[in-house]
Amino acid sequence: MKEKYIQILGVILSVGYGIFIVFLYAAEPRTLEEVSMKAKSTVENAVTKGQVIAGTYEIDQAKFNEGLQAFRQDNFVLARDGFDKADLEKRDSKTQFYIAYSFYRQGWGRISNDDALFKQSLDTLSRVTLLDPNFRSDDANLQLRTPVELKAELEEGLKVTADDFNPLRLVRERK
């Protein structure tokens, strides 16, 4: 083989082997079987990140539909799992809004709200605002269609006021 080809091939092989070693130390597989699993997930992540950079990123519609179905059945944990899998990069405002809404609905209580879930909802909601400041949901089943409305509801739920002791609160409805 010509000297130059040996050198070029040497560089390519060294870089390839080096990348494999870096991957092993980053992924830290515990067994040989885990190596292939971690490699697969790393490649998938890299592809998704590449799509984000190229501007061709799209959510997994099938997983989103599964999540939406679970959301409408009030199975919020399963719904969030579906939404998370659909939007791996957390870059879709619609999916993130549903995640925030699922935290709200799960945390809502007739007597008292779950503050931890409400705070998680607020965190997710801030992401929605960053992704799309003018976001408005087209889902007719949601009474709070914009991040601002949902945020106001959540903040109201987190506050302790005299109104919280109003017995009429027991007849209020979840939005």
Partner: peptide, 30 residues
């Protein structure tokens, strides 16, 4: 040339791979 550009990097990179590898006492996992 083969020695310098294939074998030597392979030897050094394998040493680099093995240098940080330990086996767990509990289950021999990496």
């Amino acid at each position: 040339h083969y020695l310098l550009y294939f074998v030597l990097p392979f030897i050094f990179l394998t040493a680099a791979l093995l240098g940080g590898l330990r086996l767990s006492a509990a289950d021999n996992s990496f």
